[in-house]
Amino acid sequence: MFEIRLHSRGGQGGVTAAKLIAYAAFLDGKYATATPLYGAERRGAPVVSFIRIDDRPIRVYSQIRNPDLVIVLDESIMELVDVLKGLKPDGEVFVNSQKGTCVEGHRTYPVDLTSISLSLDLVLAGNPILNTPLIGAIAKLGVISQESAKQVIAETFRDERNVEAALRAYEELKI
């Protein structure tokens, strides 16, 4: 089972991003679950979502304690929350970063999703849309296939710029 923990701020689209990644895995023929963790969050507060992907039906409903991959949609959260908590020794980190942030001891993939969205004017309610470039980047990591990533974006967002954002993030992520 491949387990992902996604850190974001309320209103950034982290919960939707988790659903879309799981949906792409479903299109790849895998079993997948996406679970948001709800508390007293509101806009701007740190929130967490979980994604599980497996070849067999998933029986686990509790939170992910030892993720294989941590996704951070807002790097300022790293000052508030220990995003590396429980990360497997060989676990990897994806950070939406404008300054190439890397964490010690873990392979880190910094990509500037925010600038990609802003350059394409992908803005919703004053916030850059981070879901679609994120899906492109995650496809580069091999968690989901490129084809499924494209299909998820096409089904969910009508605007072609979302596909462009995903492609740019795919290119910018260096393996």
Binding site: A18, K19, A22, Y23, F26, Y31, A32, T33, A34, T35, P36, Y38, I58, Y61
Partner: peptide
Amino acid sequence: LDGFLLTHITQT
């Protein structure tokens, strides 16, 4: 159905 654990999880 368990609130959030099942109402809000996304599955096939």
